[in-house]
Design a protein around this nucleic acid. Structure first.
Lengths: 192, 192
DNA sequence: TAGTGTAGAGAACGATCGTTCTCGATACTA
DNA sequence: TAGTATCGAGAACGATCGTTCTCTACACTA
């Protein structure tokens, strides 16, 4: 097992455990046990638990947004791409281990203690907003940024609702609301 | 200082600290130092930290919903009461110590470890949904429950967004989106 | 005033955590 | 084969946590 494989295995175990139980509820020894990498090697790859947490969130941010984008970008019709976001959410909510948004959860748990974690959560939501804006722009609505921000509210609300109520159907309500908002925004544009 | 005053002072200190820093980041000794009640008396009122956490969330649930309801119910026009919810959110977001929703935060931090905490978070969101449904019902929309659920998505999304971005204006976008949803829902009703 | 009970301050206890260190085994080099 | 470097297992360390206990001081009763 070379250095880079150890690195990946640690990060995989950390992601599973941190996401499932929360960061502070998981000790470094639990991560070592899950991935079979010794503590010595673990601390050669990650200088501290905080470092590992940061890398966990960074990689998850990348992967999460890429999965969403590659799903939505398959739709050829621009309007379909927005609703596809909520279809993707629904599939995510139905996954067995779904436990809400890693960034919302980590922010609530650690933002007061760790500015690095707070920054990553902000970055994640910012990038998501940027992507939504790009999705909305081709739709000829009046204020794409404002509409994208409203879509983001629906997305975060749906994630929170699905995780607390354990009901994936929050995605349906969010999708219906998004469609209402989009037709309202397109109507406002036409009225000019 | 009698028993009931000690109880209240402990609970006040616990709420301040838990909300500000998160539950696991606050030790019992920090609560004792903040409220000036000895550990012995503290453990006479609350048998364990978990007990204290549960009482903290219970009281906050009561107070939070009462504050919201007494604000919104002042409006005489039913349609105004819904938008008043978002005005109230905006005022809340602007308060100095605002750090998001105590229930979303606690759920993310503790739901995997403490079913009691998870239950309270669910109850809080359920009761809020019930209140929103009651607000929507007089508006002659087609499916009041579905609209209330969409409003709840906007509310939770706004709370998350305001806390992560540290920008209270998320309430404005949510309010605008809520108005769009309500007119769309009223329009659908009229179209029948 | 003597005796009883209660209170608070903080030490103590056992557990757990993040992190480092020790030690024995194993693999590679000359 | 002898010597060197590397590795994993897990003990060790210091800190912190939740919880309980000790001890002293003080208030109240007879």
């Amino acid at each position: 097992m070379d250095h880079s494989e150890a690195y990946t295995r640690v990060l995989n175990a950390a992601e599973e455990l941190f996401y499932e139980r929360g960061v502070q509820a998981v000790g470094m020894d639990a991560i070592r046990a899950r991935c079979g990498v010794s503590l010595k090697r673990l601390y050669q790859s990650f200088t501290s638990k905080e470092h590992l947490v940061v890398e966990y969130l960074r990689r998850r941010d990348q992967r999460w947004r890429e999965a969403l984008m590659s799903f939505a970008d398959q739709r050829s019709e621009p309007a379909d791409r927005v609703t596809a976001v909520f279809d993707w959410l629904h599939e995510w909510f139905r996954e067995p281990g779904f436990r809400g948004c890693a960034f919302i959860n980590s922010f609530g748990e650690l933002s007061a203690t760790s500015p690095a974690v707070a920054d990553i959560a902000r970055h994640h939501k910012d990038e998501l907003k940027r992507y939504l804006t790009a999705l909305v722009e081709p739709l000829a609505v009046d204020e794409p940024l404002a509409v994208a921000e409203q879509l983001l509210l629906l997305i975060d609300g749906a994630i929170v609702s699905a995780s607390i109520t354990q009901n994936p159907d929050a995605a349906h309500g969010a999708r219906a609301a998004a469609e209402s908002l989009l037709t309202a925004a397109a109507g406002a544009q036409r009225a000019h």
